[in-house]
C-alpha cells in the first residue's frame, strides 16, 4: 500500500521515493485506456564528417566558382604580398594554376590550387616536418563491417538498436514501461541506464517525445499479465557523445549501431513504418 501511495504523495519528484525506503517494491507500470505507456529512446550518433557531394553538386560548385571569378574584382596583390617574398611567389604559382583551370572546363579551380599547394609543401622543408595526412573517409570498422562500433559510417547518422531475448520482434530501440507518477523523459533516462549501462555520455534533446508507436500484445501475453491489451511507446530523442552500450544480458542481449537504411533488415515492417519519419535521412 505504501509502495503505491508514496509516489503519488510525492507527486512529480517520484524518484525521490527511493531515498525513503530502499526495500520499496517496483512501482506499477502506467496504464492509460488499456494501453501500457512505454518510453523509447532514439539514441543517435550524428555524422562525424561532411557527406560526399554528388557529381552534380561538384560540377555545379566548379561552374559557379569560375563564374564568380570572372566577375570578381582583381586581388590587389601589392597590398597583400611584399615584392619578392615567398608568399608572393606562391601566390603567383597558384594564380597560374587558376588561369590554366579557367581555360579548361574539365579542371576545377579549387582543386587546381590544392595541387600546387601540395607541390609547394613538398618542396618546403619546414612544412614537411609537420605535414599531416588526411584520413580515409572509410574507417577500420567500415572495412570489418563491425556494426557495434561507433566509428562506422562516418557520414551517416547511426541509431542504437538492442536485441531482446525472444524470437519475434527481437530488435528494437531501447524501451521500457513508464511507472506511475513518472515523467516520460525520466523513464527514458532510467531505461537507457538499466538496459545499456552507465557507460555512455548521452544528451536528451528536450523533454518532449518525437514520435509514438502503438501495438497490441500477443494473446498469451495478455492472458499472463491482464490489465493492458497493448502498449504505446513514446520515443525520446537523444545524442551520444562518448562511451559505448554495455548490455545487461537480461533484458537486452545484443546491440547494434545502424543507419536508417540498414534498420529494415532488423525490425519488422510495421515497426519501421512507425519510426521512419523520426529518423534523419542522412
Amino acid at each position: 500500500m505504501i509502495a503505491r501511495t508514496l509516489p503519488r504523495m510525492l507527486g512529480k519528484g517520484a524518484h525521490l521515493s527511493r531515498s525513503f525506503a530502499t526495500s520499496i517494491q517496483a512501482r506499477a507500470p502506467l496504464v492509460s485506456s488499456n494501453y501500457r505507456i512505454a518510453s523509447g529512446i532514439v539514441l543517435s550518433r550524428t555524422p562525424q564528417i561532411t557527406r560526399d557531394s554528388t557529381p552534380f553538386e561538384k560540377a555545379y560548385f566548379d561552374y559557379s566558382e569560375k563564374l564568380e571569378r570572372q566577375s570578381a574584382i582583381p586581388l590587389p596583390a601589392d597590398f597583400y604580398f611584399k615584392k619578392g617574398s615567398l608568399a608572393e611567389r606562391r601566390w603567383k604559382e597558384d594564380e597560374a594554376a587558376r588561369m590554366k583551370a579557367m581555360a579548361d572546363p574539365k579542371l576545377s579551380l579549387s582543386e587546381a590550387v590544392k595541387e600546387t599547394q601540395v607541390k609547394q609543401e613538398d618542396a618546403d622543408v619546414t612544412t614537411q616536418m609537420n605535414k599531416f595526412e588526411t584520413g580515409s573517409r572509410l574507417s577500420e570498422a567500415d572495412k570489418k563491417n563491425d556494426i557495434k562500433s561507433l566509428n562506422r559510417a562516418l557520414q551517416r547518422t547511426l541509431y542504437l538498436i538492442v536485441k531482446k531475448p525472444r524470437d519475434q520482434h527481437a530488435w528494437q530501440f531501447p524501451q521500457g514501461a513508464v511507472e506511475e507518477g513518472e515523467y516520460l523523459h525520466d523513464a527514458a533516462e532510467r531505461e537507457l541506464e538499466e538496459e545499456c549501462g552507465k557507460n555512455m555520455d548521452v544528451w536528451f534533446v528536450g523533454r518532449q517525445p518525437v514520435g509514438h508507436y502503438a501495438y497490441k500484445f500477443p494473446e498469451d501475453h495478455v492472458a499472463k499479465y491482464p490489465g493492458a491489451t497493448g502498449a504505446k511507446v513514446f520515443f525520446m530523442k537523444a545524442h551520444v557523445f562518448a562511451g559505448q552500450c554495455n548490455p545487461d544480458n537480461k533484458e537486452v542481449v545484443d546491440f547494434a549501431w545502424v543507419t536508417k537504411d540498414e534498420l529494415p533488415n532488423y525490425v519488422s515492417p510495421e515497426y519501421f513504418n512507425a519510426v521512419k519519419d523520426m529518423l534523419s535521412d542522412l
Binding site: T50, S53, P55, E57, K58, A59, F61, S110
Partner: peptide, 19 residues
C-alpha cells in the same frame, strides 16, 4: 560540361556548417 562518371569521393563543394 560535367560528367557523372566515377570520381574520388569527397565533400568537394559542400559547406560544412550548412550541412
Amino acid at each position: 560540361l560535367f560528367s557523372t562518371g566515377a570520381v574520388v569521393a569527397s565533400s568537394h563543394g559542400l559547406n560544412r556548417l550548412k550541412e
